[in-house]
Simulated scan of single mutants.
Amino acid sequence: MTAKIEVTTPRAIVTGGTRGTGAAVARRLRASGMDVTVIARTPGDGDAENGAVRFVPADLTDPDAAAEAARRVLALGAPDVLVHVAGGSGSPAGGFAALGEAEWARELDLNLLSAVRLDRALVPAMIEAGRGTIIHVASIQARMPLWDGTLAYAAAKAALRTYSKGLAGQLAAHGIRVNSVSPGGIQTEAADRLVERLTERFDGDGDAAWDSLVAALGGVPLGRFATPEEIADVIAFLASDTAASILGADIVVDGGTVRTT
């Protein structure tokens, strides 16, 4: 008699998964057949509210909240896929002089340490399971920082990319693949808010602010920013068995903005 093979649904965790790119990632992984849990400060519209995905409320910049979120996740078992999308910038324009201790701490906490905290809590279970995929969403600003509007954010994302590369080397022997994705401009509300902040420096001229953003990036040869769904498709590929030999990579999705890597 042939033994019955138990088939389990892959479990995915997406941070920042209720809005923008994070929500698109959660939808895409759910569509691929995964059991998805999103971790975010607040619920958003759509899947996280109608029950298609599981929602765990947490502010990952708070170590205690991150630990509690990890405890709730691990109660269901080790995750198979962990995607860190949570991030963003709320600092004022003006470069280094506009950034005090509070701004630097906030940007580092959100864009670097929130991922580090959750990895530290969840990776031991993934090691014990002998499998898993971790994807950190960085930014092309790790390579070409916009000093005026997002200097601290860029520095934090550069650190996240380096951390991701180092973690990939450490975890490879345990059957865990770690990669990062570095988007350029994405058509999200966060991009709109950045333009709004820059608009203040152009006396309320939103078009000039937008042009300055594109110019600071060195242009976008594709002629447009990527959609959240396009970023989600790349992440879904990295999370799939099709990408089984991709490890320690940083995949740039920027419409051609970065000419060399």
Rank of each mutant, 00 (worst) to 15 (best):
I5Y: 05
V7L: 08
R11H: 11
R11L: 07
A12Q: 05
A12L: 05
G16Y: 03
G17P: 00
T18Q: 04
T18P: 02
R19L: 01
G20S: 04
T21I: 13
G22C: 09
A24G: 02
A26I: 00
R28D: 02
R28M: 12
A31L: 15
S32K: 13
G33D: 10
M34Q: 15
V36N: 03
T37L: 08
T42R: 13
P43V: 12
A48W: 06
R54M: 11
V56E: 09
V56H: 06
A58M: 05
L60Y: 08
L60T: 10
P63S: 06
A66L: 08
A67I: 07
A67D: 15
R72A: 11
G77R: 15
A78L: 10
V81N: 14
L82R: 07
G88D: 08
S89Y: 02
S91W: 03
A93T: 10
A93W: 00
E107P: 01
L108F: 15
L110N: 07
L113K: 13
L113Y: 11
S114L: 06
A115G: 07
R117C: 08
L118K: 04
D119I: 00
D119M: 03
P124G: 07
M126H: 01
M126Q: 03
A129Y: 04
A138C: 05
R143G: 00
P145E: 12
D148V: 05
G149E: 04
Y153E: 13
A155P: 00
A155V: 15
L160R: 07
R161A: 13
T162R: 05
T162Y: 01
K165F: 14
G166R: 03
G169E: 00
A173H: 00
S180M: 03
S180T: 04
S180L: 01
V181R: 01
S182R: 02
S182L: 03
G185H: 06
Q187N: 03
A191K: 11
D192N: 09
V195C: 10
R201A: 12
F202P: 09
D203N: 13
G204I: 04
G206E: 15
D211S: 15
S212C: 11
L213F: 12
L213S: 09
V214M: 10
G218A: 00
G219A: 08
V220F: 01
G223N: 06
R224W: 01
E230N: 06
D233E: 14
I235D: 02
F237W: 03
S240E: 10
T242D: 13
S245K: 14
S245W: 07
L247D: 08
L247R: 13
D250G: 12
I251L: 14
V253D: 12
V258E: 04
T260A: 12
